[in-house]
Simulated assay, not measured.
Amino acid sequence: MKYIGFILFTVMTNAAAQLMLKQGMMSLGDISFAGTNPVIKILQIVFSPWVFFGLCTFVISMASHLYVLSKVELSFAYPFLSLAYVAVAVFAYFVFREDLNGFRIAGIAAICVGTILIAQGGSGHAETSDPSTPKSVQSSELTQ
C-alpha cells in the first residue's frame, strides 16, 4: 500500500488524458481525410491543443506506471487501472453530459468492488528473486 498514491496518480492522469482527447476530437469536428494528405491531417489532429495535451498527459501517466511497475507486483498494480474507467464515466457524465444509466452504474460498482478485493488480496510489493529459495516446479517438468 506504500505506492498507492503513485498508482492513483497513474489512474487519474490516464483518465484526464482520455477526457482531453475527447475534448480535442470534439473541438475538431467531423474529421475527413478526403482530398487531403493523411500525414498532414494526422499532424493537424496530433498538434491541436487538447489532443496534444492529452497525449502529453498519457506520457506522464505511462512514466508513473513504469515507476509503479518497478516497485509493486504487476498483478497488484494493473487492475487498479480499471479505476480509470470509473473516473472517465463519472467525469464524462458531468463534463460531456454522457449517459450514466443503471447498467453503467452497476458496472462501475463491480469495478470498484473488484479493485478493492485485489487491493486486499496481496501485499503489492514486488518480490526480489532470491537464489537460495527453491523454484516452483511446472507441471510439464513433472511429466519428464
Rank of each mutant, 00 (worst) to 15 (best):
A34G: 04
G35N: 10
S136C: 02
V46Y: 06
F52I: 10
S132V: 08
I42A: 14
C112A: 14
V68A: 10
F52T: 05
C112W: 01
I111Q: 07
V113L: 15
F91G: 06
V46P: 09
S140W: 05
S27Q: 15
Q144N: 11
V51G: 07
G5S: 12
T133H: 03
Q120C: 07
P49G: 12
S61T: 06
A17M: 07
C56Q: 07
F9I: 15
T115S: 13
I111C: 08
G102L: 07
E98Y: 02
G124R: 02
V113K: 03
S48C: 10
Q23I: 05
S82R: 05
L8S: 08
F80I: 13
V113N: 10
I118W: 03
P131I: 06
N101L: 01
I4A: 07
S64P: 00
H125S: 15
C112S: 12
L66A: 12
P38N: 10
H65N: 03
K41G: 12
G24A: 07
I60C: 09
I116C: 11
T115G: 15
D99H: 00
F33V: 04
E141H: 02
F47T: 04
F9V: 12
D130W: 01
I105K: 00
Q23W: 09
V72E: 07
I108L: 12
G29Y: 05
V72M: 04
A87H: 01
F6T: 03
F76K: 00
L81V: 14
S132W: 01
P79L: 12
S64F: 11
A126R: 11
Y67D: 06
K135A: 13
L66W: 11
V95H: 05
V113A: 15
V39C: 09
A63T: 13
S70Y: 00
I7V: 15
W50A: 14
A106I: 10
A89M: 05
A84D: 12
L66N: 06
L8Y: 12
S27D: 15
P49N: 05
Q144E: 14
T115Q: 02
L28I: 09
A34P: 02
K22I: 04
L8P: 11
V39M: 14
I40N: 10
Q23P: 06
P79V: 14
F91H: 05
L100P: 04
L28R: 04
D30H: 01
A87S: 08
T10C: 12
A110W: 01
V68N: 08
L43T: 01
Q44P: 02
Q18F: 04
G114A: 11
